[in-house]
Design a protein around this nucleic acid. Structure first.
Length: 817
RNA sequence: GCCGGAGUGGCGGAAUUGGUCUACGCGCACGACUCAAAAUCGUGUGGGGGCAACCCCUUGGGAGUUCAAGUCUCCCCUCCGGCACCA
C-alpha cells in the first residue's frame, strides 16, 4: 500500500485545478453562462487586509468554511463565483512604511504576494482570475467615482469635527492609536482638535437601513446589532422656552417677546413624564451654549468644564458607574411647557451632542442617571407627578442614534478624495475623465505637523487648475478611510477588469439577480467584529447606488453569517506581542492542507471563537490516513476483482460480494445517513458535526473489511469539500477521469436511513432505569405495557402507585409514581 | 457602562431545540503486533460509594416552571467581541 504523502498529492492537484481553471466562474457576457442552464451562486468572504505578519491560522477559517459551501454548490450544478482580493489601504501598512521608509506600494505588494501563496497552499477554490486590490488605481478610480456620485447628490459634505491630536508629534491620531487617552507613540496626552472633515450622510438612509433588514437573511444577532447601531427610537420633540433670570420677578404682562431668548429643543422617548421634569441638561458642545455666552453669568466656570469634557471618549462620558459631573448655566432658565415652572439648565457630559437634539429634559424620579445627577447637585426631585399624553407638548418624531460618517483621513495610504478647491468656484469635483486621482509618490509618509495629510506637502500634487474657471486651484489632500474600498468590492468581482464602469449592469444582474427586493450576494460570511460598521457602510453604498440605477438590487447581501475567531492556545487572543501566533505554513508542511482544513472545521462550532491546539491536529490527520488506507484497499479490491474476472469468467462478480453483503448493507445504511447529515450540516455551517459523522463512517468502513466501490466513492464525494486533495487523489486512483469537483453531489436514499428497531429509555420520575428495544412503527400503548412489565422496572415500581405514563415517540417512556 | 455571544469531563466539543448529558476528537491507562520503538488496532476513561447487582451526585452559582431542564423564566458571577479614525 502506498504511504499517504500529502506533499506529493496536494501541490500536484493544486496545479492541475489551476491549469484546468475549474474554479473560474463562468462569465455571462463572454461564456454565455446566462444562457446556459446552470443557475448562478455567489459566495463571498471578507477580503483580507494583507498585513506584514502574513497569514495566521485564524484567516483561513472563513475561507475554508465558504469553500466547503462553494464546492458543494458546484457539485450541485451551480455556476459559482467565489472570489478574493486585497483590502490593502490602511494604517498598519502606512505606519510600517513610515518606520522603514518604504513605499507602501512595495509593502502591499510583498504582503499580498505572501498571502496569495499561503492561501493557495490551502487549496481554497477561489477564482484567482478575478483578484482585486483596493490600492490598484484601476480599482480606486471607481471608489473615487462613487464618491463623486455622493457629492453630486449632496450626500457628501464638509463639517467641523473633532479629531484626536497629539500635541508633541503634531499629528492626528486614529482612535486605535490613542491608548488610555495618550498617544501610542510618545505617551503624550491626546487632545481633541476641530477640523473640517468630509462627511457622508448615512443618516439619510437610516430609516431604510433599519426597515430593509426585514428583507434579508442575516443571523438574528446580526440584525439586532445593526438595529441597535442604527438605534431607531420614537419619541417627541418638545420645545422649552428660555428666559433670562433678570426677568424672573417681572409680572407676566412685561414678558414681551424681546425678553425671551431662543427655545431649546429636547428629544424624549418619555414625553409622558414631562410633569416630573425639574431641570434640563444640554451637551457641553450644544450650539446654544456658545450663543448664550453673554447671558451666562458663570461663563468662565462653564468654559472650563467644556474644555475638560472635550478630551473624554463617549464611553468615559456615558458609563453609568462614573460619577456625574456638570455645571449650571447661571443667569438663564427654561420654562416647562407643561406646568409653566421655571427650571434650571445644566450642561453635563452624560448628554451626548449628536444623539437626539443634544439636550434632554431630566426626570430624576424616573431615570437613574437623572436621579444620581439631581442628588449630587441638590436639584429638585418630584416623586409623584401627573402623567401626560404622548404628544401633548410636542410633535412626534423618529430619531436614530446613527451618526453621519466621517469620511476624511489626514493620511497618505488611502484613496485621494477627488475634489479641487477653487477660490472662485468653491469645491469642484474632479472631472470623470481625469479619474483616478492617483496617489503621488512621496519621500516622507509622515503626516504634516499642521494636521494635514502628507499629500499637502507635495506642491505638484496640490497645485492644479480649476476644471471650471481654469484658474489656480488646490487639490483636496484628505484621503478616504479604509472602509471606502470595502464598501463596494463585491460589485467589482462581477466584472473586475471593466475600464468603462465599476461593473456592467449585465454582469451585476447576472450575479446579484435582477429582482430588486430579493437579490444580492447569495451568501456572505465574515467576522462578527464587522457586523456593524463594514456591513452597514456597504449596505448604505449599495442602497445609494441602487437609487442611481447603477445596481439591480436594493440590498447587497441576501444572507450573512459570522465565524468565530481562532484564539491562541489557552483561549487568549493570538498576537505578535504574546508570541502565540501560529503560521499555517508550518502546519501545511508537517500535516498537509487537508489536515489543516479538517482540523479547523472540526475544532469547534464555526460561529464561535475557539482555542487553537497544535496537539489535537493529529486527530484530523489520523482521520485522513484512515480514509487513505480504506481507499487503497478498495483500489486493490478492484484490481483483484478484475484479475478474477479475467482468469475465470464463471465467477463474474459473485462470491466475494455475497460474503459481506450484510456488512455492506449496514455500511450502505450508515453512508446514506451520513450523506444526509453532511448535506444538512454544511448548510447550517455545522462543519464540526459533519466531520464527526464522517469519522464514524470512516471507522466503520475500515472495520468492514470490504467496502463497495460505489459506496466508497460517494463517501469521497461528501468528503471532497473538506479535504479536496486526498479526495481527488483517491477518486483518480479509483479510475475516475474527471475531477471530483465536477461530479454530482450524491443522493441519499430515504428508505435506507430509517431503522426498524430503536432503543428507547424507560424512566421513573425522570430517572432512567431501563432501556428497551421497540419497533419504530410500534403502537404506543403496546410499548407502555411492555415497559411497565420489564424486570428492572418492576423492581422499582414495587409498592408504588403509578400516576401516569408518558410516551415520547422514539425517545422514551416516563413513568410517574 | 451599554449592546451582542459564550460558560458541559484532564482538554476541544456533542446533545434531533424541553425528552437516555458527555457523540466525535485530543490526552491518559491497559492490552495486541514488535527484539524494541513508532505507527496501527482493541478495551477502558465525568465524580463519589459498593466484592457485586446496583445506588447517589454532576452542564459557572442560586431560585423557579414542568412528568421531564444543558435547553425555558428570574437574580448573580466569569470570559470573549463591538462601541463609530484598527481592519
Amino acid at each position: 500500500m502506498k504511504e499517504y504523502d500529502h506533499k506529493k498529492i496536494e501541490h500536484k492537484w493544486q496545479l492541475e485545478w489551476e491549469k484546468k481553471g475549474i474554479y473560474h466562474a463562468e462569465n455571462p457576457a463572454k461564456d454565455g453562462a446566462s444562457k446556459s442552464k446552470k443557475p448562478k451562486y455567489y459566495s463571498l468572504i471578507e477580503f483580507p487586509y494583507p498585513s506584514g505578519d502574513g497569514l495566521h491560522v485564524g484567516h483561513p477559517r472563513p475561507y475554508i468554511g465558504m469553500d466547503i459551501i462553494s464546492r458543494k454548490r458546484r457539485m450541485e450544478g451551480f455556476n459559482v463565483l467565489y472570489p478574493i482580493g486585497w483590502d490593502a489601504f490602511g494604517l498598519p501598512t502606512e505606519n510600517f512604511a513610515i518606520k522603514n521608509n518604504l513605499d507602501p506600494r512595495i509593502v502591499t505588494k510583498r504582503n499580498s504576494d505572501t498571502f496569495r501563496r499561503q492561501i493557495k497552499s490551502l487549496g481554497v477554490s477561489f477564482d484567482w482570475s478575478r483578484e482585486i486590490n483596493t490600492t490598484d488605481p484601476k480599482y480606486y478610480k471607481w471608489t473615487q467615482w462613487i464618491f463623486l456620485q455622493f457629492l453630486k447628490k449632496g450626500l457628501a459634505y464638509k463639517a467641523k469635527m473633532a479629531i484626536n491630536w497629539c500635541p508633541k508629534d503634531k499629528i492626528g491620531l486614529a482612535n486605535e492609536e490613542v491608548i488610555g487617552g495618550a498617544c501610542e507613540r510618545c505617551g503624550t496626552k491626546v487632545e481633541k482638535r476641530e477640523k473640517e472633515q468630509w462627511m457622508l450622510a448615512i443618516t439619510k438612509y437610516a430609516e431604510r437601513l433599519d426597515k430593509d433588514l426585514d428583507t434579508v437573511d442575516y443571523l438574528p444577532q446580526i440584525k439586532l446589532a445593526q438595529r441597535n447601531w442604527i438605534g431607531k427610537s420614537e419619541g417627541v420633540e418638545i420645545s422649552f422656552q428660555l428666559i433670562t433670570d433678570s426677568f424672573q420677578n417681572l409680572s407676566s404682562k412685561l414678558k414681551a417677546k424681546s425678553q425671551e431668548l431662543e427655545a431649546i429643543q429636547v428629544f424624549t422617548t418619555r414625553p409622558d413624564t414631562i410633569f416630573g421634569t425639574t431641570y434640563l441638561v444640554l451637551a457641553p458642545e450644544h450650539e446654544l451654549v456658545q450663543k448664550l455666552k453673554n447671558k451666562i453669568k458663570n461663563w468662565s466656570e462653564v468654559e472650563k468644564y467644556i474644555k475638560e469634557v472635550k478630551n473624554k471618549t463617549d464611553i468615559e462620558r456615558t458609563a453609568e458607574d462614573k460619577t456625574k459631573t456638570g455645571v449650571e448655566l447661571k443667569g438663564i432658565k427654561a420654562i416647562n411647557p407643561a406646568n409653566k415652572e421655571k427650571i434650571p439648565i445644566w450642561i453635563a457630559d452624560y448628554v451626548l451632542p449628536y444623539y437626539g437634539t443634544g439636550a434632554i429634559m431630566a426626570v430624576p424620579a424616573d431615570d437613574a442617571r437623572d436621579r444620581e445627577f439631581a442628588e449630587k447637585f441638590k436639584l429638585p426631585i418630584v416623586e409623584n407627578y401627573e402623567k401626560a399624553g404622548f404628544e401633548d407638548f410636542g410633535k412626534k418624531i423618529t430619531t436614530f442614534k446613527l451618526r453621519d460618517w466621517i469620511f476624511s483621513r489626514q493620511r497618505y495610504w488611502g484613496e485621494p478624495i477627488p475634489v479641487i478647491n477653487c477660490g472662485k468656484c468653491g469645491i469642484v469635483p474632479v472631472p470623470e475623465k481625469d479619474l483616478p486621482v492617483k496617489l503621488p509618490k512621496v519621500k516622507n509618509y509622515q503626516p504634516t505637523d499642521s494636521g494635514e495629510s502628507p499629500l499637502a506637502n507635495i506642491k505638484s500634487f496640490v497645485d492644479t487648475r480649476c476644471p471650471l474657471c481654469k484658474g489656480k486651484a488646490k487639490r483636496e489632500t484628505d484621503t478616504m478611510p479604509n472602509w471606502a474600498g470595502s464598501s463596494w468590492y463585491y460589485l467589482r468581482y462581477t466584472d473586475p477588469k471593466n475600464s468603462k464602469e465599476f461593473a456592467s449592469i449585465k454582469n451585476l444582474k447576472y450575479w446579484l439577480g435582477s429582482d430588486p427586493a430579493g437579490g444580492g450576494v447569495n451568501w456572505y460570511n465574515g467576522g462578527s467584529e464587522h457586523i456593524t460598521l463594514h456591513l452597514l457602510y456597504s449596505r448604505f453604498w449599495h442602497k445609494f447606488l441602487f437609487d442611481q440605477g447603477l445596481v439591480p438590487t436594493s440590498e447587497p447581501y441576501k444572507k450573512r453569517t459570522s465565524h468565530g475567531m481562532i484564539l491562541g492556545e489557552g483561549g487568549v487572543k493570538m498576537s505578535k506581542s504574546l508570541g502565540n501566533v501560529i503560521n499555517p505554513d508550518e502546519i501545511v508542511k508537517t500535516y498537509g492542507a487537508d489536515t489543516l482544513r479538517v482540523y479547523e472545521m472540526f475544532m469547534g462550532p464555526f460561529n464561535q471563537s475557539v482555542a487553537w491546539s497544535t496537539e489535537s491536529i493529529i486527530g484530523a490527520r489520523r482521520f485522513i490516513e484512515k480514509v487513505w488506507r480504506t481507499g487503497n484497499k478498495v483500489v486493490l479490491q478492484i484490481n483483484s476483482d478484475k484479475k478474477l474476472i479475467k482468469t475465470d469468467k464463471k465467477y463474474q462478480g459473485t462470491s466475494v460480494s455475497n460474503q459481506s453483503s450484510s456488512v455492506n448493507f449496514s455500511i450502505e445504511k450508515l453512508l446514506n445517513k451520513t450523506i444526509k447529515k453532511v448535506e444538512e450540516d454544511i448548510e447550517e455551517m455545522h462543519f464540526n458535526t459533519a466531520i464527526s459523522s464522517m469519522m464514524i463512517l470512516a471507522t466503520e468502513m475500515e472495520k468492514a473489511g470490504k467496502v463497495d466501490t460505489g459506496d466508497y466513492k460517494k463517501f469521497l464525494q461528501i468528503l471532497s469539500p473538506f479535504a479536496p486533495h486526498v479526495a481527488e487523489e483517491l477518486w483518480n486512483l479509483l479510475g475516475e477521469k474527471k475531477s471530483i469537483n465536477l461530479s454530482s453531489w450524491p443522493k441519499w436514499d430515504k428508505s435506507l436511513i430509517q431503522d426498524e428497531e430503536i432503543k428507547i429509555a424507560v424512566q421513573i420520575n425522570g430517572k432512567v432505569r431501563a432501556e428497551i428495544m421497540v419497533k419504530t412503527d410500534e403502537n404506543g400503548e403496546e410499548i407502555k405495557k411492555r415497559a411497565v412489565s420489564t424486570e428492572a422496572i418492576l423492581k422499582h415500581l414495587a409498592g408504588k402507585k403509578t400516576k401516569k405514563v408518558i410516551y415520547v415517540k422514539n425517545r422514551l417512556i416516563n413513568i410517574v409514581v
